[in-house]
Nucleic acid binder design. Structure first.
Lengths: 148, 148
DNA sequence: ATGAGTGCAAAGGCTTTGCATTAGG
DNA sequence: CCTAATGCAAAGCCTTTGCACTCAT
């Protein structure tokens, strides 16, 4: 499952003459297994062998290489996830009470309509549009007031 | 122009027995004048009389009161803007090179379609959807490679 | 008058960085 | 082998907080 991801990561790092070490593999494994953006704290808990400074350094390295995306905005600290190139286009739901974050997919026709609107925006404004990100905010099942 | 905003802010604060001081008015003025999310650094530069600690305290206060919204995710530090209740529903464009952020409005029919899709999502997942946020990422006019 | 608000400065907490050691290719 | 990568620990930077003074009501 994650083998394809490892291959892409290894290839991308190789292009830059960067080594794909055990710690870096572990980082990719953890992020792939989570299926949602993780905080550094969570990454560390999931991979006790990897030191904090290495995690930060490798997240920065991966982000520069376009392999990892920093998701800020939910709660206070940064969260990290594998880039869309590796895990596909998706968006996020964030619970405003407990801070939990989950991946969300939206209908293709809606994505198409949004892409069209953003292309129009680019034409009108001289902005170059490269990507979009949708954050849905609300309450998760656990935090929602129970009806009965 | 900003008078209507001041009235809403004053009323909201009054409900909670909170004073609408000069520094707080200045903060609202700066945010209203900017028309885009500002970093604390920018707020301080625009209102030299207000001290840093007060700005942070008042931003936190306003955020709790739902009058200001913290926009994180563009660049590294938090940005703040007046809540949609005060300035209307909108989204953001962020330049990935220089970090500039601008407000963006999308077509009403697209917003409707998105709301519908999110309502469906809520039904399917037991999530309570309260709001959505779209960030468009790309290059601003100044940072885009010039064609000629 | 009187408690909220502010200023100042120090503390906090996540993140980054320097240097010596270890390990990948 | 030889440089990149890591560990450890200290430094950095934005943000928060304690305390005394000031101002709004």
């Amino acid at each position: 499952m994650t083998e394809a991801i490892h291959e892409v990561v290894a290839a991308r790092l190789g292009e830059h003459g960067v080594r794909y070490t055990g710690g870096r593999r572990a980082l990719v494994e953890v992020l792939a297994a989570a299926g949602r953006p993780l905080r550094v704290e969570e990454i560390l808990a999931a991979s006790p062998r990897v030191r904090q400074s290495s995690v930060y350094r490798n997240l920065a390295l991966f982000e520069e290489s376009g392999l990892v995306h920093r998701v800020s905005g939910h709660g206070d600290h940064a969260r990290y996830e594998l880039a869309e190139e590796l895990v596909g286009h998706h968006h996020h739901f964030a619970c405003r009470r407990c801070g939990a974050v989950a991946d969300v997919e939206l209908p293709h026709d809606l994505e198409s309509a949004l892409s069209g609107a953003l292309a129009d925006l680019a034409r009108r404004t001289h902005l170059t549009v490269e990507a979009h990100r949708i954050d849905v905010v609300g309450l998760c099942a656990a935090c929602a007031p129970t009806a009965g």
